[in-house]
Design a protein around this nucleic acid. Structure first.
Lengths: 352, 352
DNA sequence: AGCGGGTGCTCATACGTATCACCAAATACG
DNA sequence: CGTATTTGGTGATACGTATGAGCACCCGCT
């Protein structure tokens, strides 16, 4: 009708210099911007004539309209975005957590802001995410206990695998993981077992250790101090710690590692030292990262549902944001599962 | 002074129910919101008395003020956030790309929105990111050629390792990678060599193959069709393809894989078949993912600077956004580097 | 005819920030 | 001393959307 409306047509979806706004759609459809908003995102209970609704939708499609989520977020005080903080993307475990969370969030229409904590302290990352008005934050592998309270106040935090009690969270059955590893090794006949984990362990690592040690003790098979090795929870750390174990006067016959990366390092150290796995030495990891299946021999480990943890954390967060009940989700820890592969066997028979 | 200003004090940084805004800071400092904005984020050339400036900064600190980046983004038409789309976070290569990009972006004050493309087509992800008003998008491992043009129009796209010419991008020297693998194997004395790569290869995979095949041809050592295996670029795919190679009447003596994951699969298949690496068979991977160092024997490969690619993509994008010259960065491909480890050796001597 | 009530839409405003135009006071200058 | 000029700040507005209040209109009822 008017030249104006003809103007806004020019170029179609991809031609315009300026981004298409709700006002443009309104002009094109001959309605007000309010109506456009009501049709495209408003409450479905809004009273709009079918004919109008279709005209607006058609105009929006034709102009290639995409709502500006910054503007929406500003007025609704919700950005429909989550933040997720991990200590390092290098560790496949966290990658899987992120992946799981991203999928759930994406399906719910939420965006995901990633913060790889690196040098910057996690608290600072949380602040930055909040400046971006994320509706909530998932903290994975972050030492929550050492974070100042005010950094997390009013922040809708969900913590992965670090049940502090101060914040809602999802966790796996860490003591169960240690226990299952112990039971398996004991049942194979091992009596001299070692553990390796990081020196400044997170809650989960502590629980894995505790489960393992307790199960050993209950079996009347206490672990002695030289068999408890501290090293970074990485492949390099596992390598070093394993070398130390092999250098002992009386090395153990089997080992449980705080995570799979360490176990891979231990495996490597054995290969370098000419110790055959599993015939001469047994190794159990924890996490079941993808690589565990791909090394030779394949790593026996305890599966921790990383992707599931991430997904569940995201779901928990989304429910919290909707003000729904969250008791069911944050309640019980996720089950872990022992996975028998090729790095465990009965201990070698004593030399005569 | 006024009761109002006393009110906004209540509770300090962490107590307030409502988030503290620039207006609150203004009231507390006895200035206008404009002044607050000028002091805290405005152009440094703004003329503000030192005394006022300090008072505002002090008030902001005291109230725990954090600017709302949604509001800032709305008026500035810049969100100071980047999007990054990857096909799968499972592949460590992309994880490293993301990690590199995230670091550079973070240091520049940019946020990173992650989109793991999964089931949803990449074009749709780009749209969603643009709704969130990201200032630019990094596409890594995404089949850009098959994406509709209008999805990327005006989107400030930077493409990783897929130099289409239509969009700016950063790439590694893929043909060089293939060539270096070939030269190494040839120099060891191999004459019967195989290649494995995905059936529907991306540009980079095609170039790796081309470099390898051409170098062989130039050495008068053409590759025959049964030695060119197609399989998914994953560990499982490499495993299957290697099994097929070993089943040939006359198996090759060495192999170059399109990426490290396939090489790990090949390594696994050799172990399963009792073929000793490298004494009986040589394997060269490509990418140099972290795992390459951690398997036994350690994987010989061609290092592709994944983190560097991500970092450079981010830098390129940031420069583009600042309207700076980008020629230098998008120009030459990043160097790749041959990494000799333990999976290559001279071919076994012919059986007499 | 008068009126209550539903329908369908618009007006105005708010969200929190940046920024331009403008202004008062202080200072410089001939 | 009168007028430029600089200094230091304020007021108003815009960004693009959501949303409550309100308005015009039509329908059915008494």
């Amino acid at each position: 009708m008017s030249t104006r409306s003809k103007d806004s047509d020019r170029g179609g979806p991809s031609g315009g210099r300026r981004r298409v706004t709700g006002h443009d759609v309104a002009a094109h459809a001959g309605v007000s911007q309010s109506t456009v908003s009501l049709v495209l995102s408003g409450n479905p209970k809004a009273r709009i004539a079918d004919e109008t609704r279709e005209r607006v939708i058609e105009s929006a499609r034709e102009l290639g309209y995409r709502p500006n989520l910054l503007a929406r977020g500003l007025v609704q005080r919700r950005s429909f975005a989550l933040g997720i903080v991990v200590p390092e993307l290098d560790n496949p475990f966290f990658t899987e957590v992120v992946s799981g969370a991203e999928r759930v969030a994406g399906e719910a229409g939420y965006g995901v802001l990633l913060a790889d904590s690196g040098q910057i302290p996690a608290a600072e990352h949380v602040m930055r995410l909040r400046e971006r008005q994320v509706d909530g934050v998932i903290l994975a592998g972050v030492p929550v206990e050492t974070m100042p309270d005010e950094a997390l106040a009013d922040a809708n935090v969900v913590v992965v695998d670090e049940p502090t009690g101060r914040y809602p969270g999802v966790a796996s059955d860490a003591t169960g993981a240690g226990r299952k590893a112990a039971e398996h090794l004991l049942s194979l006949g091992h009596r001299s077992l070692a553990f390796m984990g990081p020196a400044d362990p997170s809650y989960t690592f502590r629980m894995r250790e505790r489960g393992f040690v307790q199960a050993l003790r209950e079996a009347g098979c206490a672990i002695t101090s030289p068999l408890l090795r501290r090293a970074p929870a990485s492949v390099a750390g596992g390598d070093r710690a394993m070398a130390a174990l092999l250098a002992l006067e009386v090395p153990p016959t089997g080992l449980f590692c705080a995570n799979d990366l360490m176990a891979l390092g231990a495996l490597k150290a054995c290969a370098a030292a000419g110790v055959r796995v599993p015939s001469e030495f047994s190794i159990v990891g924890c996490d079941d990262i993808e690589m565990a299946r791909y090394v030779t021999p394949e790593l026996t480990t305890v599966m921790v549902p990383a992707r599931g943890l991430g997904a569940r954390a995201a779901r928990l967060l989304l429910l919290t944001l909707d003000g729904r009940d969250t008791g069911a989700l944050s309640g019980k820890p996720l089950e872990v599962e022992f996975v028998s592969r090729q790095t465990t066997a009965p201990p070698p028979r004593r030399e005569p």
